[in-house]
Design a protein around this nucleic acid. Structure first.
Lengths: 160, 160
DNA sequence: TTAGTTGCAAATATTTTGCACCCTT
DNA sequence: AAGGGTGCAAAATATTTGCAACTAA
């Protein structure tokens, strides 16, 4: 299935330097090394704005030169997810997409099932109600996921 | 990964007869037949209360006698999903779980990542805010998914 | 040199599908 | 009899892992 991803607002505050420092700390803590390939993947990922799949990211890295294998990209993204630089998402279709975490505070997604575009939004009111529900059940919420699937404005304008 | 699923309230209003009638209509419309095996799967599924995986459901059917194959269960659940009797869910872990649709109005889930229990809740306030957000983006929402992951009350009580 | 890293291929895991045979209408 | 239904095995997908060779510290 084809999916497009649109950057919403490009106020890219979390800069690459900060991200790399965080990764370096994580690597040091775990006794891991740096490496060209790993750097290339991280570099390519940090340059993305939307929601990339492993396959797309691998293509990007390869397009920049390094002939990385899928396993390495999978492994690297797992590291980035561990140190909080990347957030994995499953928008259905059976594959995982990653997006940068630092860019913005928590947000949720609107997914167009017609064209595959993904929009993001923040809604504090919803978060507040979620906390209330969790409290009602004695739950400690660690993370949540909320996705609205439907047809985006431009697809609704189109005939069929 | 092991996951338990707990029935929340057992007010099973959508009775089996009604469900079977709906399925029969769907089959007729599509020019499909009835069959012992299919019935056995449907019967077993309608008897569930929580969120079953294909594997679990297959085990239940087999436990009742019929030696169904996985393919049949997959195919049957797809039919049930088509005619709105079953709702597929992906709670992570890479496998699909189905739950009965008729039981109750729309609801969302609280998932305990420690013990795997799944609780359900309804919160009209959240639904309202979702509609508002969608409207703001010119979106027509067809369905949505909202899941809160964390630790349930009893897991929080436990030491580690 | 030691220990982590990489890529390939093989292994997993889930779901789908081709096909010969069985059952329903 | 005709066409759908079934199960098995093979295919398709996505992701993980074993392993020998490579690289960073």
């Amino acid at each position: 299935m084809i999916r497009r991803s649109r950057p919403t607002s490009s106020k890219h505050s979390g800069d690459a330097a900060e991200a790399k420092a965080r990764l370096a700390a994580h690597l040091a803590r775990a006794g891991l090394n740096h490496s060209r390939t790993r750097d290339a993947v991280v570099e390519a990922f940090l340059a993305t704005t939307g929601h990339v799949s492993i396959e797309e990211l691998t293509a990007v890295v390869r397009g920049r030169g390094p002939a990385v294998g899928y396993s390495t990209v999978y492994r690297t993204m797992k590291l980035l997810a561990e140190c909080g630089l990347a957030s994995p998402h499953d928008f259905g279709g059976g594959l995982t997409r990653y997006e940068r975490t630092l860019e913005r505070a928590h947000h949720d997604h609107l997914i167009c099932t017609a064209c595959g575009a993904i929009f993001e939004f923040e809604e504090e009111g919803i978060e507040a109600l979620q906390r209330e529900v969790a409290h009602r059940y004695g739950f400690e919420v660690l993370r949540h996921k909320m996705e609205l699937y439907g047809r985006c404005a431009s697809c609704r304008r189109r005939p069929k």
